[in-house]
Design a protein around this nucleic acid. Structure first.
Lengths: 152, 152
DNA sequence: CTCGTTGCAAAGGATTTGCACAAGT
DNA sequence: ACTTGTGCAAATCCTTTGCAACGAG
């Protein structure tokens, strides 16, 4: 891995707004980046692990506040995969999510999957689809086969 | 179109499972059908209105339980449009939802919008998309123009 | 120093669950 | 009668908010 993508856009964007670069903000962004599809809760848990025994992990409220901030800064995105838990992912390269209703398995798919649909919506309704936020529900192959073989 | 779709599939499907046809179940189904994109809360509110003064409306927990049941029976579907509020609609004819992040406006779109995407997912991943549950987020024309004309 | 940030604790809203009583078949 | 369904209240879960102390610039 040679040339890296994002040296420190976080610091820049924060300064541009007169906001401050804190350890917690770096930690939250790092956690979102490493965990692929993380809920705020999962992010908190991860930070707790990293902090280890004596270390102090950011409070849940701080995680929420910073996720919202990072999203405003355009560094992370969130999607609602289903009930109860939005998942966050780094905004680096857009991709959309496919979720299996049965097993909860999440797959990432290239955003061009919806290109034609997006164009049609723009043409018909003037509606711009936000690909990063899209989640498609359905049934994955494994669950489909499982359901087929089960009876009663 | 002469032949009708649903005379009383509710009663049939319930009996087929040895379940009971209650006033509350009819009420909830009726509310979901008449309100287009209703949250459980909105459904409860509607039932309360219909009940009027002395009338007793179903309890919130009953609404939740019956929405889940009706969904299992295949009579209603729900979608997560964003945070905190799944919306239910009658399962009669499938359609997908498009939601504006700015104004919250919900539009219904013909399901064939995603036909090509669905085919591709099936071919690539063996994943079956559930069109009734799909919600696309984005920005509607009105909000897009409004955002464009505003500055600072 | 000054003002944005964090941690803590309490408030809030949305769902779910246990149980005794009421109701459908 | 027998068994499922409902209402009520308590329990959860997820997220937000108020406030005093803390720390970045």
């Amino acid at each position: 891995m040679g040339t890296e993508h994002s040296p420190a856009p976080l610091a820049e964007r924060l300064r541009a707004r007169g906001l401050r670069l804190t350890a917690q903000r770096k930690q939250v962004l790092a956690a979102v980046t490493s965990l692929e599809h993380a809920t705020p809760d999962a992010i908190g848990a991860r930070l707790r692990e990293e902090a280890g025994a004596g270390g102090a992990a950011p409070d849940a409220s701080t995680v929420y506040r910073n996720l919202e901030l990072l999203e405003q800064l355009g560094l992370v995105w969130h999607t609602h995969l289903g009930k109860g838990a939005p998942v966050y992912h780094a905004a680096e390269h857009p991709h959309l999510h496919v979720v299996c209703q049965s097993c909860g398995e999440i797959s990432s798919v290239a955003p061009d999957l919806l290109d034609s649909a997006a164009e049609r919506l723009t043409a018909d309704l003037g509606f711009t689809v936000d690909v990063g936020h899209v989640a498609l529900s359905g049934t994955c192959r494994a669950c489909r086969e499982r359901a087929g073989s089960e009876h009663s």
